[in-house]
Write a protein that binds this DNA or RNA. Structure first.
Lengths: 160, 160
DNA sequence: GCTGAAAAATGATAGAA
DNA sequence: TTCTATCATTTTTCAGC
C-alpha cells in the first residue's frame, strides 16, 4: 500500500492533470501546476515513489477492438473459502473478457465486468467458464446500457 | 465512436504496452513492437485519430488521497424515464466519490462504484445524496473487499 | 507502409537562491 | 525545496525507398 504522504495543492493539480491525460509532457504539466519543469519532475518521482500514483493506462475503446458488448456478471460461490476462492479468482482473471473483478459484501460474492464480442460470446463465458465450475452457485447477467466515468479522484474539500 | 479500423499485430502490441504503462516513451514502445520510432509515432497518431485509444490516465491509489474505502451501490429509480434519469446521472457524476456509473439491465437500474473516506462518508452519500432523491426507490450497498484488474484488452484470438 | 536523417521539442542535470 | 540555464536525449516530420 501507499505510505501516508502529505499532498499539497500542487500535488493535487498534478494528479488531476495526469488523471485526464497520462501522456501529458512534463513541460505542460509544470505549466499547468505553475512550477518549473525540474520541480515537476521531482514531484512526479516523489508521487510515484510514495505509491500515490500506481501505474497508468491508455483507455481503449472496446468496440474498436471487436468487443462492443459489456456486462456485469454477479456470481455466488460456495463454499466461500479461500482454497476455493483463489482458483476461482485466477480463472476469472485468465479470461481475456475480464476487465475488472470485485469481491463484495452482500448476497453476491463477486462482480465481474466483462467486454465481449456478442451475446454468444457472453453466453459461452457464463455457461462454459462460470456456471460449469463446481464452486459457482449462481450467475446473474446484467448488460451495460451505458457507462460514465466519475470526475477526478480528489480528497473531499480539496481546492479546484 | 471509433471508426472501424483494421488492427494488425503491431497495433495490438502497441495497445498492450500502453495499457500497462501509458507514459512509456515512443522509443521503448517502438523497440517492443519491433518497428522504427518514426513508424511508431505514425501508428500512435493513427490509433488516436481512429478513436481506438480514447484518452489515458494514471492510476491513483485511493487510500493515498484519503479515500481508502470502496463500495458498489446498486440503485433502483422510478419512474425509469429519461427526464428523471438524466438529472439523476448528472447528480451522481457530480459527487466526487463517484468513480464509475453503470446503467444496467436487470432489477437494479444503476450501479455506482464509489471511493469514500470512511463508513460515515458512505452513509452520508447513500442517505443524503441518493435515497433523499424522489426518483430513487432503493439503494443496496456492497463494500468492496478487494478488486483485481483484468488482463490486457485484446480481441479474442489475437497473438500474444 | 517502412526507413533514416534533419529539425523541433522535451527531459535531466547542476548550481544558485 | 525551488528555480534558471544548459545540454543530451527524444520525438516528430518528411523525402525517398
Amino acid at each position: 500500500m501507499a505510505a501516508q504522504v502529505e499532498l499539497d495543492v500542487v500535488d493535487m493539480r498534478l494528479l488531476r492533470a495526469l488523471q485526464d491525460d497520462a501522456r501529458m509532457t512534463n513541460r505542460e504539466l509544470a505549466a499547468r501546476a505553475g512550477i518549473a519543469t525540474s520541480t515537476c519532475s521531482d514531484r512526479l518521482a516523489r508521487l510515484r515513489d510514495a505509491g500515490v500514483m500506481c501505474g497508468s493506462a491508455v483507455r481503449i475503446e472496446p468496440s474498436a477492438v471487436g468487443r462492443p458488448l459489456e456486462a456485469m456478471l454477479a456470481v455466488r460461490v460456495h463454499p466461500h473459502r479461500r482454497p476455493l476462492v483463489d482458483p476461482f479468482v485466477r480463472h476469472v482473471l485468465a479470461q481475456p473478457e475480464t476487465r475488472h473483478l470485485y469481491h463484495l459484501t452482500g448476497p453476491d460474492d463477486f462482480l465481474i465486468h466483462v467486454t465481449v464480442v456478442d451475446a454468444a460470446d457472453l453466453q459461452r463465458l457464463v455457461l462454459d467458464e462460470l456456471t460449469a465450475r463446481d464452486e459457482v452457485v449462481m450467475v446473474h447477467t446484467h448488460l451495460i446500457f451505458h457507462q460514465w466515468r466519475g470526475g477526478p479522484l480528489l480528497p473531499p474539500g480539496a481546492e479546484g
